[in-house]
């Protein structure tokens, strides 16, 4: 019963946040809407027994990633309101129509066992111990690879930040600094 109440409340919050993210003219509101959705999803994680993932969601996403987003929003300029007029001819109706179709198809697909798989296993608690056992035993190699991926991303970011426009001859026109 508690779960149902929680689900209804936070599902509404999540959808509201998502719509705000997409709809708001001002990117700051988009960021706030996204943060609302992220928190709601964290709640769903907890109600599904994924305690560690929920914690990580709050700390990494709502904390670090959102801070970064807001930082960039401030840097790039909050004052520019986007022109709502669509200038690609059929983009808007086609996109909406296709997405409705897509959503419908996914919802229909969810009714088939070949999509969802056999249900009925006992739910397992995603404590730090359980998930740590999982990650550092079965998934240890992919886990190490993610470390590599993060290093590469960090290096790429530093490289992007180091070069200023006009510093390298011939790259002035189209490309970003690289």
């Amino acid at each position: 019963m508690v779960e149902l109440v929680l689900f209804v409340i936070f599902a509404l919050a999540a959808v509201f946040g998502a719509v705000t993210t997409v709809w708001a003219r001002n990117p700051v509101y988009s960021a706030l809407g996204l943060m609302l959705t992220l928190f709601s999803v964290a709640v769903f994680y907890v109600s599904n027994g994924a305690h560690l993932v929920a914690a990580v969601q709050v700390i990494v996403y709502a904390g670090a990633v959102m801070t970064l987003f807001l930082f960039v929003v401030m840097l790039v300029g909050v004052d520019r309101a986007e022109n709502r007029k669509e200038n690609l001819p059929v983009q808007r109706p086609l996109a909406l129509g296709l997405l409705v179709l897509f959503g419908g198809a996914v919802l229909v697909a969810g009714r088939f066992a070949w999509v969802t798989g056999p249900s009925g296993g006992r739910a397992r608690e995603g404590t730090a111990e359980a998930l740590g056992n999982e990650l550092f035993r079965r998934w240890v190699l992919p886990f190490e690879l993610t470390a590599l991926l993060l290093i590469i991303a960090a290096a790429g970011t530093i490289a992007l930040g180091m070069f200023r426009p006009g510093e390298e001859g011939g790259e002035e026109d189209e490309g970003e600094a690289a």
Binding site: V56, G120, R122, R124, L131, T146, A153
Partner: peptide, 24 residues
Amino acid sequence: VAAGRALGVLDGQAAVFFVMVVAA
């Protein structure tokens, strides 16, 4: 996460971990 709960495995949560890394 939801599917992992339905199937009774922790693989889903491990996958979430990796998705988060990629997203970051």
